[in-house]
Every structure is written in structure tokens, then in C-alpha cells.
């Protein structure tokens, strides 16, 4: 929160953001909505303060999103056990996955996070001020201690780059990604999981496809794990996508691909277009995953934590989000997940 405020130049805007951040802690305003400037695409995951009262349907869906992505990452780590692998997280923002994975896999896993410079700075300095955070990433805090900014000026002239022997935070604009922007310690020959958790959906259609094509071309062996909304098939009775576009617009958020890749079929065609074999491709909506991937006991356990009245609404929302698992060069065996595939 501290560094978030420091990243803002205008005193007025700083006050407004500070007010909204405080509200977030009392859960009156959505973090992203309040903190996102008009039409500036921002990548990352929402910041959910501990104990925040989100609506049950959103809590349930967020849990499903996290657990289904974790399932694939776990599969990937297990299938390639003992081998040196990489995870490249696009628009990592406030994502905390690295804190969980590196203590477990730091011997074989290199974790790279990409985001806009300002987001990286906020994350970097937040990490550096808390031992519970930097210790998990094997970051040497003492080497970085002198860099902590104290005001906007020192913040803006600081560098968002952070490195340890297994964790790498890389300030970059994904719309203009070039090979030379990727640090030398990124190994294009290693098996690499590329994660986009609601990231490329904020980019233009061309931009996002160029990015994926680029990674597909240069990585010898890779796995895309993409979670994003899809507008769905518009019918006379269902205009979910159209309503979502309108609602997001009132918050200054644009998702250019929402109605472009609005169905599972279209997403499938998109990834086949990157030269992914059908046998290496799994495209499911989250409703399917909820009923087919998740163990019944887990759902029972979660249901006891918070009662959920709107099953239909959850199903409807979940059917408008997709998880895409697309592999090439033997990075991942999709066989098991394909058996549990939709159609």
C-alpha cells in the first residue's frame, strides 16, 4: 500500500488512491476499479485483502481459478520432476504464486515475472521490506536495502528489476516485447510454462497473438496456461458478453478479445493457429472444470466455509471463463486432462 502511493506523482490522485485503498480494506470499492486509470491496460491479479467480504459467487470463482491453475502447474512440475524448468508469468502484478512455488521447487525452477515498470517497483519494494516475503524468493535483502525509495522522486527514478538465484522480476511492456528485453538467465531451451492469468485479455487481438506467437516460436519446449473471460455466444435470451463489455467500460476497463474469442471453439482455433497439435491442447470453460476436475470432497469442504445460494449464477459466470492448456515440444502431456475434456 505504501509503495503503491509512492508511485503516484499527483498529490490529488495520491489522496484519491489512498482513500480507495483504505476503502478496499473495508471492501467498499474494488481495488482494480479504483486504481486503474482510464484506458490504461493493467496486467495482474486482483488484490484481495485478508478477510475482505467479496460476494460468495466471486469468492467461489476465484478459488476455482486459483486451484485449477495450480493443478496444471503441479502436473507440469510433477511430469518434469528433477529437470530444470522455468515459469514465465505474464502481467504478474500482485500475483503471489512464486511465494508458494519457490520454497518447494527452488532447486529446479526459475521463476520469471513480467509487468509494467511501476507495478514491478511496487512489488519489488513491498517484497524487500518484509522478510517473510523476500526469504521465500531467496532474495538477498541486504544487497538491495539501500535502494528503497522514500518519495515519488526517488520512486520514479528507481529500478523495478529484482533478482535472486531463482526469482526474477522484469519490468517490461508486453506489447513491445523483444528478445533482448528478456534477461540472459532466461533459457529458451528449457521447458517453460507461460502463465497468463487474466493478462493477455487486456491486450489488443493482434498484440496478444503476436506475443503468444513469439513465445511459441522461440521456446523450444513450452506450455501456455491461459485463464481469461470469453463473451459467449450471444443469443436472444443471453447477452452476457455484451453486458460485461458495457459494465467494464463504466470502470474504464477494456478487454478487446472478449467478443473476438468468445467461445471455446474460437479459442481452440486460435491456439491451433499457433501450431499447437490438437492432442496437446485442452480448452475448457470453468463450469466444466468445477464439475469435472475438482474432487467432490473439495467442493463439499469449500461449501462449508461459505454458503453459496447462486449456483445458476456461478455456473453462468464460470461458463464465460476459459482455461487453456497448450503445449509443444514435449513440455507437458495433456493426455490426462484431454480425457476430462469438454464436448
Amino acid at each position: 500500500m505504501h509503495y503503491k502511493l509512492m508511485s503516484i506523482e499527483s498529490e490529488f490522485r495520491r489522496l484519491a488512491v489512498s482513500r480507495n485503498l483504505r476503502k478496499t480494506f473495508f471492501n467498499l470499492v474494488d481495488y482494480k476499479a479504483s486504481d486503474n486509470g482510464n484506458n490504461i491496460p493493467r496486467f495482474g491479479t486482483p488484490h484481495v485483502p485478508v478477510g475482505a467480504l467479496k460476494s460468495p459467487v466471486i469468492n467461489r470463482g476465484t478459488w476455482l481459478r486459483t486451484s485449477s491453475i495450480s493443478m496444471i502447474i503441479d502436473d507440469f512440475m510433477k511430469q518434469n520432476e528433477g529437470e530444470n524448468v522455468q515459469i514465465l508469468s505474464l502481467g504478474a502484478g500482485n500475483d503471489t504464486r512464486a511465494f508458494e512455488l519457490l520454497p518447494k521447487y527452488h532447486k529446479t525452477l526459475q521463476y520469471f515475472e513480467l509487468d509494467f515498470p511501476d507495478s514491478c517497483k511496487v512489488k519489488k519494494f513491498t517484497i524487500l521490506t518484509d522478510k517473510r516475503l523476500y526469504a521465500k524468493l531467496f532474495v538477498e535483502a541486504s544487497a538491495n536495502a539501500s535502494q528503497l525509495p522514500t518519495d515519488y522522486l526517488s520512486f520514479s527514478s528507481s529500478d523495478g528489476k529484482l533478482d535472486s538465484n531463482c526469482y526474477h522480476l522484469i519490468p517490461s511492456d508486453l506489447r513491445k516485447l523483444r528478445k533482448e528485453m528478456i534477461p540472459a538467465n532466461f533459457d529458451w531451451t528449457k521447458k517453460t510454462l507461460v502463465l497468463s492469468e487474466c493478462c493477455i485479455c487486456y491486450m489488443g487481438t493482434e498484440e496478444s497473438n503476436q506475443l503468444l506467437e513469439y513465445l511459441r516460436k522461440w521456446l523450444i519446449s513450452g506450455l501456455f496456461v491461459v485463464y481469461e473471460p470469453m463473451g459467449g455466444q450471444e443469443t436472444q435470451d443471453s447477452r452476457y458478453g455484451e453486458v460485461m463489455v458495457r459494465n467494464l467500460k463504466t470502470r474504464g476497463i477494456e478487454m478487446p478479445n472478449l467478443m473476438v474469442y468468445n467461445t471455446i471453439e474460437k479459442q481452440e482455433a486460435r491456439f491451433k493457429g499457433f501450431g499447437i497439435d490438437l492432442k496437446d491442447l485442452v480448452v475448457c470453460d470453468l463450469k466444466f472444470i468445477y464439475y469435472n476436475w475438482i474432487v467432490r470432497n473439495s467442493i463439499m469442504r469449500i461449501s462449508q466455509l461459505e454458503m453459496l445460494d447462486e449456483i445458476e449464477e456461478l455456473n453462468l459466470i464460470n461458463s464465460h471463463y476459459t482455461l487453456i492448456v497448450a503445449s509443444w515440444g514435449n513440455a507437458f502431456n495433456c493426455k490426462l486432462r484431454r480425457q476430462l475434456q469438454q464436448h
Partner: peptide
Amino acid sequence: GGTEVPSKKPVADYFL
């Protein structure tokens, strides 16, 4: 038109 959703209250939520 958008007037139906009071601007100061939380709008429809999504996973973003």
C-alpha cells in the same frame, strides 16, 4: 443507459 446502477455503489463484479 447506465443510470440504473448507482455510480457510488459497487458495480457488477468479475474475476479480473
